[in-house]
Design a protein around this nucleic acid. Sequence first.
DNA 1: GCGAGCTGAAAAACCGTTTTATCAAACTTG
DNA 2: CAAGTTTGATAAAACGGTTTTTCAGCTCGC
Lengths: 351, 351
Amino acid sequence: MRCEDVAKAERIRIYDVARVAGVSVATASKALNDTGRMTEATRQRVKQTAAALGFRPNAMARALTQQRSFTIGLLTNDTYGRFTLPVMAGISEALVDEGVSVFLCGIEDDAALAALHVDAMLDKQVDGIIATGKRIDRRLPVDLSGLAVPVVYAFTDGPSDAVTLVSDDDQGARDAAEWLLGLGRQRIVHVTGPDSFASVAARAGAFCSVVGEKAKVLHGPWSEAWGHEAVAQLWRGEQSPPDAIFCGNDQIARGVVDALRERGVAVPEQVSVIGFDNWEIVAAASRPPLTTVDMNLKELGREAGRLILQLAEGKPVEPGVRKLPCKLVVRQSCGGETIAAGDQGGVLQEV
Amino acid sequence: MRCEDVAKAERIRIYDVARVAGVSVATASKALNDTGRMTEATRQRVKQTAAALGFRPNAMARALTQQRSFTIGLLTNDTYGRFTLPVMAGISEALVDEGVSVFLCGIEDDAALAALHVDAMLDKQVDGIIATGKRIDRRLPVDLSGLAVPVVYAFTDGPSDAVTLVSDDDQGARDAAEWLLGLGRQRIVHVTGPDSFASVAARAGAFCSVVGEKAKVLHGPWSEAWGHEAVAQLWRGEQSPPDAIFCGNDQIARGVVDALRERGVAVPEQVSVIGFDNWEIVAAASRPPLTTVDMNLKELGREAGRLILQLAEGKPVEPGVRKLPCKLVVRQSCGGETIAAGDQGGVLQEV
DNA sequence: GCGAGCTGAAAAACCGTTTTATCAAACTTG
DNA sequence: CAAGTTTGATAAAACGGTTTTTCAGCTCGC
């Protein structure tokens, strides 16, 4: 009857497909999943019927029998989302084709909230959990070890026997330092964050090993204000001021660039500046736009997605820390050729 | 056997609870859900057993019978997450206590990707979808009407017969303008975004209605660069420059503040500046930090969560546009008393 | 010409809950 | 005290799929 169609627009079940195709439910299921044995003709007939009817299997029912929900949880404490969003985008990209969806949970350093969300995820039978955060060496306020589901740590610290993904701070800093040396810079200073961060130490170490004896490192907060302050310190000093500054993040770099402009020092003519993070909103809005180290967070997310998928499927994954390479994005704060990569580092296209 | 515990750590089912409590599965279910009829003693016994065993119901199985997954989808095309993350936080806050989890899907203005994600959501039987985006009057590249599940539009444009939540641009702009007048400012200019945006027109209209005849509005892109450019225009002009500038967003405001400083114009002593969005990362890092209009996106998210929940439960919700009030956050770019609200507008505490 | 082996498909069991129908025992009521 | 009504609890049927088991009909070998 016509009115049946109109009345409810009921979702059609595999039962309907089976009936229309003239086979049993079991056969329909096997036909659609390319399992079991049957005439190729039967299989095709079922598939065509399903397509014609617009059949979409109920993921809940499927999850119940297969013990897989095709769902994963993403836990983060990064409120601004500047690290989480690129990671999330990568994860999503890696998983959407597999039919896996992502629960996002922001937990803001609140242990109770975190526990609540983890419980909710487990109730929803997630196939795995990816933990991510604000900085590589900071932990989430929740213990994810001993869970019944696999866990991958991406851009956040986890237990030593866990599967962990981080960006290669060492290599990123080395590339930046070498780039500055390659531009002929002589007096290079590293203005970075608090030395309580492991990644700060790693970058500083790599920086010093490239630059050598004359390397100088200044620590301070992760803020624009610190960039201003650092420039004031450097230009106040007795010895000649630097001709290049490698900054620990883009905010510091922006502060440095602004301070230099106000001081009448030309960037990049007199001083080259490199940032870290490639946080487009900051890097592209600086004057001049910042050459900066991109941590490839989206790729890191993709890899995290692939790994959690493998684990969810029961395939073995070697535990340990995996480092993913950083990439220097060249804009205009450094001088030197404007590489093709300049494209993607281009103007911030807002809204 | 001990080894059974260790070997599998199998999830315990309602069946186990029933067996241990010495009742049937049906009774156990009813006891735990506070439905059906039974001795209070029985109910308590079952509940205690469940608690002792650490029973957690399988959400998939529950979803299958109840036709509710306790899951909703959040669709967005806001890549930077500056609007989406606060909205998401609000939604999550409103729903976590109800046991509802959120699928986040970033679709980046890609219609095919959007369709893919929507299909995935529908397969997962989401109880509803919340659409959100970058700007109130921009649409997502996907048609959500006629879906089997309820939809709420938050901070993005939807069909006229939909449930829609937006911030009250009009009121926000009015508050800002009145605040400036209250400070005794005489020559107030509105430097804002492209006039193709409905919210730009709304704010400009409200601004003009408050300021009156002498109101002046300049349109340009949503960028810091436009802030610089606008200041150049205003100070180049014949007539006396403004003593207050109300900006269409915080990026423009930051550009304006920077340009004024470079020009030697004191903010807030000579010119008051107000931004829009309260994007902390920009507003708090400006020198001086920006007084700005906060759109209360988190509260908007909370309300969206409440509404989608009502709809999911089948309760009626009046369709139409709901406007939520904006709030002026006072920092230092304006002069005037530094209200208590200054606290939460405080320094950006990074990492 | 009759059991063994294979093939294609149906029937039945299962996943872990909720919900409906059923039922014995205890409790009213006239 | 027999008939009707509550009460407390159980067995069984959903929910919408997948997976295992069963089985009838052929083909083949000896």
